[in-house]
């Protein structure tokens, strides 16, 4: 019974993790940047939902719809502010780590100043809250809401990536930026939009994270970045499908660990990274690394 429960819970939460990690993978795939401030963007999404709920009585799910275009625009601007200067550096990838580590620290500090240090949460009743029975067992409603919101958002993201002109251009840049430029693709514009989309995915996940994690606080970013990074390494850096599959497997592994070895459950992300590095460095979908 507990095994079944853990698997279902793992799949539900895995879809949420996929939404949380996808933006990090997209930004890495397009720009070869590990955005160490990714978790902080998730955190800002949570605070955004809190402000919209208490300031404008906006349902958190609706808040996601409001936040997506705003965060795409912010990401677009942020890209032009940060990345072009960075790209002129000799060791671009390493320097990006340093830069985004700094961004992460600044965002955390500003969030603490702006929102205070206390963890904030949204009332359980702000989303459907009645437990959902499935296969004879009750599951918290917020898990279904998280999965139910993450799934269509991921589907839209895949449609964008595989069925639109901009998505094809994005994948071309992911495959080889120089070749993409040589066939007339505006790589900078594509990268800027991807950066915005990555941020939007993070912010959307941040709204759901308020319920899944029980609240939002300014310091949660680092832990979220580590979990998201573990997932994309496990699923293969640069592979969106790998992120989805990796997230679900991560979710199931984490839930099983909570049932059978709760004391060790927080080691799951680190074991995944180390295990992947030692056994299959290219990740689950390794052959498609950096090719969407």
């Amino acid at each position: 019974m507990l095994v079944e429960y853990s698997i279902v819970a793992g799949v539900l939460l895995g879809l949420f993790y996929a939404l949380m990690a996808m933006g990090l993978n997209l930004v890495f795939g397009v720009q070869r940047i590990i955005n160490l401030a990714h978790g902080d963007m998730v955190m800002l999404g949570g605070f955004g939902a809190w402000e919209l709920y208490y300031g404008y009585h906006l349902n958190p799910v609706v808040a996601i719809v409001v936040m997506i275009p705003i965060t795409v625009a912010v990401g677009f601007g942020l890209y032009y502010l940060l990345i072009p200067r960075l790209k002129s550096a000799v060791d671009f990838e390493t320097l990006s780590l340093v830069l985004f580590f700094g961004v992460s620290q600044v965002v955390e500090a500003l969030a603490a100043l702006g929102f205070g240090n206390n963890e904030r949460s949204l009332p359980v009743s702000s989303i459907p809250s009645h437990p959902v029975n499935f296969l004879g067992q009750p599951y918290p409603a917020d898990w279904w809401v998280a999965a139910g919101v993450a799934l269509p958002l991921l589907a839209i993201f895949f449609l964008y990536l595989y069925r639109t002109r901009l998505g094809r251009e994005t994948r071309a840049v992911m495959a080889d930026e120089h070749e993409a430029v040589s066939v007339g693709i505006d790589a900078a514009r594509v990268s800027a939009i991807s950066f915005g989309v990555g941020l939007a995915l993070a912010a959307a996940a941040g709204v759901l994270a308020v319920f899944v994690f029980g609240g939002v606080d300014p310091s949660e970013g680092v832990g979220i970045t580590i979990t998201a990074f573990a997932i994309i390494v496990f699923g293969s850096l640069g592979s969106p499908l790998g992120t989805v599959v990796g997230s679900i497997l991560f979710g199931v592994a984490y839930q099983l660990a909570q049932v059978y070895t709760p004391s060790w459950s927080n080691l799951v992300p680190y074991v995944l990274v180390i295990g992947t590095m030692l056994l299959r460095p290219q990740g689950l979908f390794g052959r498609r690394t950096r090719i969407a």
Binding site: M1, S6, Q258, S263
Partner: peptide, 20 residues
């Protein structure tokens, strides 16, 4: 009787284990 990491914030599955 079970110890869990201090950083734990996800209790859904643990609660189900307890309820059992």
């Amino acid at each position: 009787y079970q110890g869990i990491p201090t950083s734990t914030t996800s209790y859904g599955t643990i609660l189900t284990s307890i309820a059992a």
